[in-house]
Write a protein that binds this DNA or RNA. Structure first.
Lengths: 192, 192
DNA sequence: CGATTCTTTGAAAACAGTCAATCTGTGTGG
DNA sequence: CCACACAGATTGACTGTTTTCAAAGAATCG
């Protein structure tokens, strides 16, 4: 039931059989159908969510009603609203399934217990956060210095495996472009 | 000598006298004069750097030769290149003093030892990283959905205390605007 | 198949960037 | 103490990229 997740974990860190049981005991499986929400803006996010199957998007709606996608999470990625999680305040993000998905939820309290009980996991978790930090940093740089075309090229270079599972206008919403601009960029690039 | 830093730390977490000594023993003081560099692109960054006095900027130069400022670090903030630090690869960033500054350097290895020896510090460090993550997240959103004017207003709201210590064209380089655009935004806003 | 959703295309408008010149203030050296 | 040089800020005119609005076409889901 949690095999995907356990495989993912034991791939990264060594776990004793007892520790594996410990992990399994705090896992909860949640199935989502396409278009179903895992988190709605305004609710407080109190989980760590591992996508074991499917694809999920984390997005935000701005004052003008426009959607901005923060992250796509396919299998073996995490999803969540860190701001809501850390500060325990209402989420600004929504999380929605783009495909029928299976999510493993670990409640915040249990997760913290895990980290304390398994030092290697604590270290791994910190590394994960540091890497995510670097990714965000590069996205800021990209946003400030790349043209629309460069942004798109960077995206297909970074995420070649998921582009065909995501509607184009959502890639635009991720890159901070209008759908029309992205469409033009794609066709124009092809011409050259 | 390291008083500022020790005050900062004991303000956040409880430390025994022995632990304080432990911390002090791994600290190194580095004085920088205005325009001096703490890190140059291409070098590997192996420290944790706490600004105990002065002001420092972390920036990157893109292919077109344009500067993009990632962060300003005044007193009681940290500076560094996390990508270089984590992956031990050549830095893409430069760090330069904007004022005569005093920096406390803790070598990577020593810092990790500290975190292991002082669990409370480990937790605090993780919280710091999580908060930084949230800040970056919001900056991405800002970059994708704010106009030039909104970006500037957000900046003065977030960092009212340092705006008068930073030349305007550097604020522009931080926000991803041209200096001319920022100048116009400021005057135009005043008119209304 | 029917309806919705997604993509493409065109034309016009808005926004920010570039280039160039001028203006301002500051600090340095004669 | 003045004059000059230099870095930074402002302004204007122009350009270019991206957005917006609108409509039509294509694809997909139920």
């Amino acid at each position: 039931m949690f095999d995907n997740f356990i495989t993912y974990l034991t791939d990264k860190i060594e776990l004793t059989p007892e520790q594996i049981i410990m992990v399994e005991q705090v896992c909860r499986l949640k199935k989502l159908r396409r278009k179903q929400y895992l988190l709605q803006e305004g609710d407080i996010w109190r989980y760590n969510a591992f996508v074991s199957k499917g694809l999920v998007r984390t997005f935000r709606v701005d004052e003008k009603g426009q959607e901005h996608i923060f992250q796509f999470s396919p299998e073996n990625w995490w999803a969540g609203d860190r701001q809501s999680y850390v500060y325990e305040e209402p989420a600004k993000f929504n999380i929605e399934a783009l495909e029928d998905s299976e999510i493993i939820l670990i409640p915040k309290g249990d997760f913290e217990t895990l980290l304390e009980a398994i030092p290697a996991y604590n270290t791994f978790q910190r590394m994960l956060l540091e890497r995510s930090f670097v990714v965000l940093q590069n996205r800021i740089h990209m946003g400030n210095s790349y043209t629309a075309e460069e942004k798109y090229n960077e995206f297909i270079k970074m995420y070649p495996d998921i582009i065909n599972r995501i509607p184009q206008h959502m890639i635009a919403a991720y890159l901070g472009l209008s759908p029309e601009t992205l469409s033009r960029v794609r066709n124009h690039s092809a011409k050259k």
